[in-house]
Each structure stands twice: as structure tokens, then as C-alpha cells.
Simulated scan of single mutants.
Amino acid sequence: MPSKTRKSLEALVAYLKQSKSRRSTILNGQGEPGHRAAPARGGNHDTRIGSRIDVGEVIKKAGKEYRRYKFQLNLNAQDSTLKKKAAQDSHKVYSTADVEIKGDRTEEEEEQAMRDFEDQLSKNLEE
């Protein structure tokens, strides 16, 4: 049975996939390091999902630029387990994913980039 942290990650990825603008935020590497990529602070998605994707630094790999995204838990999570974990260290990074900064992807390339993003977050998850 998946942990509550993994379930929260899955709910967050599903939330990102529901909206083209949310996907674009991630795939275009938008945002300032330390700020949220998704979901927006406040509102019911933030507490219901119980986790967030924060914008990380830009890194270079093989001559290409990538944006690192960080998966973290929220202090205001509805789920008591997630809330307790976040209270221990609200800045703890449970997973990361690096996305190539590229603005002109085809629809197929976008789908592949989102799958890669999801796979990295899942593979790198530390519970």
C-alpha cells in the first residue's frame, strides 16, 4: 500500500496534469527559486493535496539548462500524517525532478516531458 507521502505526490501530479497552464509553468521552467510552482498557496487544493512543488535553481547538464523542482509537504495539510511530517521540517525536500527549459515543445514532447517529470519525482521520493 502506498504511503501517504506517495499518495500526496500522485495527487499533486494529477493536479498538474489537469491544466495546460500548470503543465506549462513546469515545462517552461517558470518561477523564482524558493517560490511555489503548484498548487497556489491557500485554497482547497493546497490543504487537500497536502504537498507542493517548489521552484528550484537552474542547473546545466550536457550543455542544456534544466530547472530543478522540489517536492515538499505542507504545514496546512488536511491529512494528519502529512501535517506532522511537515511540522518536523517544512522545508524538507522529499523528492526532486529536473526539467529541461525548453519553450517550443510539440504536444508529444510535452507529454514525454511530463512523464519524465513524474517518473523522476516518483523514483527520487524519500519517505
Rank of each mutant, 00 (worst) to 15 (best):
P2I: 12
K4H: 11
K4M: 11
K4I: 06
R6C: 08
S8P: 00
L9F: 05
E10V: 07
L12H: 05
V13I: 13
A14H: 04
A14L: 05
L16K: 03
Q18T: 15
S19D: 14
K20L: 04
K20D: 04
S21P: 13
S21R: 15
S21D: 14
R22Q: 08
R22A: 04
R22T: 13
R23T: 09
R23S: 13
T25W: 14
T25S: 14
G29M: 07
Q30F: 14
G31T: 12
E32L: 06
G34E: 14
G34H: 15
R36F: 15
R36I: 08
A37N: 15
A38D: 10
A38I: 08
A38M: 10
P39I: 12
R41F: 11
N44E: 11
D46Q: 13
D46T: 04
R48E: 12
S51V: 02
I53F: 15
D54I: 06
G56T: 10
E57N: 11
V58W: 08
I59H: 02
I59S: 05
I59K: 11
K61E: 03
A62R: 08
G63Q: 09
K64A: 11
Y69S: 06
K70A: 05
N74M: 05
L75M: 12
L75F: 12
L75W: 11
L75I: 04
N76G: 09
N76K: 14
A77M: 04
A77C: 01
Q78D: 12
D79Q: 03
S80A: 10
L82H: 08
L82Q: 05
K85E: 15
A86C: 04
A86L: 02
A87I: 01
A87P: 03
A87W: 04
D89C: 04
S90Y: 05
H91T: 11
K92T: 02
V93S: 00
S95Y: 02
T96Q: 00
T96N: 01
T96Y: 02
A97W: 00
E100C: 06
I101V: 13
K102A: 09
K102I: 05
G103I: 06
D104S: 10
D104M: 09
R105L: 14
T106K: 13
T106E: 12
E107Y: 11
E108N: 07
E108F: 07
E108L: 04
E109G: 09
A113Y: 00
R115V: 14
D116P: 01
D116W: 00
Q120N: 04
L121G: 00
L121I: 01
L121S: 00
S122R: 00
K123D: 06
K123F: 04
K123A: 08
L125K: 03
L125Q: 01
L125V: 06
L125H: 00
E126R: 02
